[in-house]
Amino acid sequence: MSKSVGNVIDPFSLVDHYGLDQVRYFLLREVPFGQDGNYSHEAIVNRTNADLANDLGNLAQRSLSMINKNCEAKVPQPGDFTDADKAILNQAVAALETARKAVGTQAMHLALGAIFAVVAEANRYFAAQEPWALKKTDPARMETVLYVTAEVIRRIGILCLPFIPGSAAKLLDVLAVPADKRNFVNLLGGSELVPGADLPAPQPIFPRYVETDKEA
């Protein structure tokens, strides 16, 4: 595969090479739908590695691995929510309204922008709350932070379903979200993760694109 994707105009090879949801995400996120744009190998790799592999993939992998190790592979038991907890939970719901308006005018890049702003904020939340440190100092608070993170990932997963349906479904699978609870109405309350529910073993969902150097 040439680095310049000079020879990749065939959608089948593009999908084979980068992955289906990587291609879908890139095309929908990178350029406003009404405008012309170009695509290059570098742009596809940078965008999908940054947003999917790093931001969303790592957040899910780190938080779910912690839950798996420290919470007996069950949905953690949250205590009272702090303002920081409520803020990130609410942002995930507010993103729906932004996304709905954007998709209503065929501006998918803005919808994904709002959804991935939640992903970025959830990463900041996770880093700031330091659940790995709470493990020793305040295990109950650790469970709350992990619960909030997992619940935010559930909401992000549902919001991502239209855009990257295969990967978003896998994300919801590792949270054991039932098939009939994967609609936007399930963002609004009553469908939150149930503390104590069993979770399957976490598995990586967004592989990182690694350059293979190089077939001559």
Partner: peptide, 25 residues
């Protein structure tokens, strides 16, 4: 001719809008 990236782009975007509206009830 065979499908090319332009066809794929339109289909993916339209699919995203269709799915969005299905998930929206």
């Amino acid at each position: 001719g065979s499908p090319h990236i332009g066809h794929a782009y339109e289909l993916i975007a339209t699919d995203a809008i269709a799915r969005f509206n299905r998930h929206d009830g």
